[in-house]
């Protein structure tokens, strides 16, 4: 138990914070119900995938600035492919877009390993490139999405044996998120590859001496990041029904949630659960601010301030740790 608390203490604290925020939300808006929670889960979905993408590379000791641009590109690719196409065609589009994210992510990693240019520069250049590619695919928001894909994240799914009252609080978007993340993350976390990702982030030298193939592991970490970003892009298309070529605020949000989620920016520490909970916390803060009838633009400022403060705090902690 003490091990669990020491390792997961931060996440437990975040959960507590989340519950407090939920209570606050109910106080602000007594009518806040399962439907609102459903829309929260839907809003969280792209953020959560962006954060997952960032988390993998940060754990491996890197950073990926191209997350948001990658989401934009995958989103417009999916939207433009599905526009006017048959419902069945989407069955092909989804794996295609995911594979595209994986390959482009691997390209990030490969460029870092081969050119030895620092990750931050390579992913910055890739940010430009992916953004440009997104504009080439669609120069304005547009495209479409298969109905079944849109339906996949709206409403709830009846689970036999659960009372409707509980069921209503399990929106499909949340289930999709949990399933997608678990299917990739849990086997990864338990595999030697997962350990290797933690190892190169924690101490590259020790990992090298322990026989970890450092370069290969780094490329795979970026490839996984690309895969999660592609999930995020699909989620964008699914929730809006279209694709937008201009990247959203997902880069800064992903870094902030990673820091808030207890993943050290130096690498090697933390897990996926913390950042995901952190995303819910950040989104719920936004909801509360909106419910308090604060100007949405002011909300954006407050949100930005929180994110910058969190990132500064994270950098400060990392600096302290190094001394």
């Amino acid at each position: 138990m003490s091990h669990f608390l020491r390792r997961q203490g931060w996440v437990v604290g975040l959960f507590a914070l989340l519950i407090v925020l939920f209570i606050a939300t109910r106080i602000i808006q007594p009518g806040y119900g399962s439907g609102d929670f459903g829309s929260l889960a839907r809003a969280v979905l792209p953020y959560a995938f962006a954060v997952a993408a960032q988390t993998v590379v940060v754990i491996a000791g890197g950073i990926d600035l191209s997350v948001a641009a990658m989401m934009a590109l995958t989103s417009v690719t999916a939207a433009s492919m599905m526009a006017g196409a048959s419902e069945e065609y989407a069955l092909f589009v989804v794996p295609f877009v995911l594979a595209m994210g994986f390959v482009l992510g691997a390209l990030n990693g490969l460029l870092i390993v081969v050119t030895r240019v620092p990750d931050i520069v390579v992913t910055l250049a890739m940010l430009f490139v992916l953004q440009g590619a997104a504009l080439l695919v669609l120069d304005a928001p547009g495209g479409g999405a298969a109905e079944w894909l849109k339906a996949l994240i709206s409403g709830t799914v009846p689970i036999p044996g659960l009372p409707d009252a509980v069921d209503a609080w399990l929106p499909k978007a949340l289930l999709v998120l949990i399933v997608c993340l678990c299917v990739i993350w849990i086997p990864l976390r338990r595999s030697r590859l997962g350990l290797s990702i933690y190892a190169i982030g924690s101490s590259e030298l020790a990992a090298f001496r322990s026989g970890v193939p450092v370069k290969r592991t780094r490329i795979i970490a970026y490839a996984l990041s690309g895969l999660f970003a592609a999930f995020g892009g699909l989620a964008l298309t699914m929730s809006t029904g279209i694709g937008a070529p201009i990247p959203g605020p997902y880069l800064l949000a992903s870094v902030a949630a990673v820091v808030l989620g207890g993943v050290a920016l130096g690498g090697g520490k933390g897990g996926l659960l913390g950042p995901i909970v952190a995303v819910f916390v950040l989104r719920l803060v936004r909801t509360d601010l909106t419910l308090l009838a604060i100007d949405p633009n002011v909300t954006a400022i407050i949100e930005g301030l929180i994110m910058v403060a969190v990132v500064m705090f994270g950098a400060f902690i990392t600096m302290r740790g190094r001394q």
Binding site: G132, L135, D139
Partner: peptide, 19 residues
């Protein structure tokens, strides 16, 4: 040349010049 291609070009310039 569309705006997108221009951005790609700028990105590649930064990457290649740095490397």
């Amino acid at each position: 040349m569309p705006e997108g291609a221009r951005r790609i070009l700028f990105g590649l310039i930064v990457l290649f010049v740095t490397a």
